[in-house]
Write a protein that binds this DNA or RNA. Structure first.
Lengths: 196, 196
DNA sequence: GAAGTAACCTACTCCCAGTAAGGTAGTGCG
DNA sequence: CGCACTACCTTACTGGGAGTAGGTTACTTC
């Protein structure tokens, strides 16, 4: 079997096993057996257990970026772009629950290289957001734009965790919830009283 | 040496070593040596390597909760409570950078029990927020209150990461950044954020 | 001073990530 | 054809660290 195909197969099996048992509890022997190959092959292709995990994350990351970029194609207003981006993000979660769990939970159970890889995902998203805000908010210092980007990423990451446990919430609902806070703010929310 | 004191000493050394080398790279032998005691003592008192980590996290968590609760003591308006809570949170980060790194980064490099422990921290914060919002926003469904709580927790967690890399940002600045988004929203900031 | 117990140790086992060294099969070339 | 070369793949090991069995010291209590 050619290398490229074997690699894809290995990543598929690893993703499955990592997501199911968690990173720590998965052994390379187990993955090798699942692929139907010997352990040194995994090391030949990915260098280490963590390298294999990184390959899994990298793939999920690429998919996430592609989906996000596609969703804002041709959009004119910043607000619409943000909204569509949010919808795309939660939509991705929807159709890749496995990958997401890997990124968010199991992947965390690794070492520095894996953490760096996850951080790269967040930085990617943060950069997208900061740039977006920069085109909308005139005269806002760069530092604040960066912070807003971080805030939205954090909010999304956390809400995503909540979202995946809720069958009755759609991606649009989730995006709407973020929008209400980030765009309108709670201060102007409907049906408010200033004191409890 | 009495058990309680020895435990405190062990936690102190473990926190130091975990924060410095990372969870994976730290060995129980190393920690035992740092304490000046043999490895089985660590197992006697904490059960496992992860148990020791959990003890470290639990301590940081208790401190965080205490600080937060103290900061909102006697506050009347929900908005002020949120603001003070945010300031307290980032203030905690400020004076416990090591504990925070442990909670946020190194701790993630563990197993289920540690993850559960971290999740408990987030749930604790989320609950506080959701309750707060419930007292302010009348007629908002419980589901949405929960979501807002999650959003703020995520936003804070992420901004905290950014915050710790910035020497020129104060806890008040960070809280203010969150407030602008969460309370006022970006939507009202057309052109500039001069109203802030 | 015997009995009990709390703090502590040495010296292991076992599991698993990572590796050394070699085997087989398809391809290019005389 | 036969020889070399490479890509894919294997068995059988090493090393290190988590976790443990079983014993020792020293202090309390009657």
């Amino acid at each position: 079997m050619p290398r490229a195909e074997r690699e894809r197969q290995m990543i598929a099996v690893a993703e499955e096993i990592f997501a199911e048992r968690g990173y720590q509890a998965s052994s390379m022997d187990e993955i090798a057996e699942g692929v139907g190959v010997s352990k040194p092959m995994l090391y030949e292709y990915f260098g280490s257990k963590e390298g294999l995990l990184v390959a899994c994350i990298r793939q999920a990351r690429a998919e996430l970026l592609a989906t996000t970029l596609a969703s804002v194609e041709g959009v004119l207003s910043a607000r619409e772009a943000l909204e569509r981006g949010l919808v795309a993000f939660f939509g991705f979660i929807d159709s890749h629950r496995r990958s997401w769990a890997l990124l968010r939970q199991e992947a965390a159970v690794a070492g520095q290289a894996a953490m760096d890889e996850i951080e790269a995902v967040r930085q990617q998203q943060t950069e997208v957001n900061a740039t977006l805000f920069g085109s909308y908010l005139v005269g806002v210092p760069d530092r604040d734009l960066q912070a807003y980007g971080e805030i939205v990423v954090g909010a999304c990451e956390r809400l995503a965790q909540w979202y995946v446990t809720r069958e009755d919430v759609t991606a649009e609902d989730a995006a709407e919830l973020i929008m209400r806070m980030v765009w309108h703010g709670l201060g102007g929310a409907t049906g408010t009283h200033s004191h409890a």
